[in-house]
């Protein structure tokens, strides 16, 4: 088994204790950075997503895989900056105003990070103005809105309106998710996409980035 395969397996098994050494070994062995990242870690997180969608992995398996990924990334990151490896895109994520729930949002952020997206996490109870300010400051590619409550769902539409008013709507894609959200609702409020879970959010984000 090559060290890249071992890194892949570490992510899949959620082995945070070993992956750092494996990444270091890959770096010492002068493996290409993009191979370590893309064939080792990102491919493994893709497989985690597939296993999740197929009902073989559940939240704990996804969490330990993401933890292993982050541990490996911590070793790799200083080198990525030097090698000018590009992120898959920049995503501004948050739970909408009035809603304090963050479990789903955090899972989505972890999976997106595992797919090489740069994440700007605004947290919970994020007002439309805060989303607008974040888009202006960070020049994100995608805004990801999360809501758990039927009563806070309308804040997604309000946030989209705020992006329009600020002249930013054409500059970012907006994706939505959360327990009460449906494809129909996403269309109704003018979002660019909806995903029912963290794994499929990755696919959606990639498709929107072209």
């Amino acid at each position: 088994m090559t060290v890249i395969n071992e890194i892949y397996q570490c992510v899949l098994d959620g082995d945070a204790g070993t992956i750092g050494d494996k990444v270091q070994a890959a770096l010492d062995g002068e493996h290409d950075l993009s191979d370590i990242l893309n064939q080792g870690m990102i491919a493994a997180m893709g497989e985690v997503g597939r296993l999740f969608e197929e009902g073989e992995y559940f939240v704990p398996e996804m969490l330990i895989a993401a933890r292993a990924m982050q541990t490996g990334l911590a070793v790799l990151k200083p080198h990525l900056a030097e090698a000018n490896v590009q992120s898959a895109g920049k995503i501004i994520i948050g739970t909408v105003k009035g809603d304090l729930h963050d479990i789903g949002k955090n899972l989505v952020a972890m999976m997106l990070e595992g797919a090489a997206f740069e994440m700007i996490d605004l947290g919970v109870d994020v007002s439309p103005d805060e989303f607008v300010a974040a888009v202006q400051e960070h020049e994100g590619d995608i805004v990801a809105l999360s809501a758990l409550l039927t009563t806070t769902m309308p804040q997604m539409a309000t946030t989209i309106d705020a992006l329009k008013t600020a002249g930013l709507r054409d500059k970012v894609k907006v994706i939505v998710g959360g327990a009460p959200i449906t494809e129909e609702y996403a269309k109704e409020i003018g979002a660019d996409g909806y995903a029912p879970d963290a794994s499929r959010t990755v696919r959606l984000a990639k498709s929107l980035m072209g």
Binding site: F58, E61, A179, D197
Partner: peptide, 12 residues
């Protein structure tokens, strides 16, 4: 459980 299934695998 949440909208995608249980928070713990059926195995556990």
């Amino acid at each position: 459980a949440y909208n995608a299934g249980p928070l713990l695998s059926p195995r556990h």
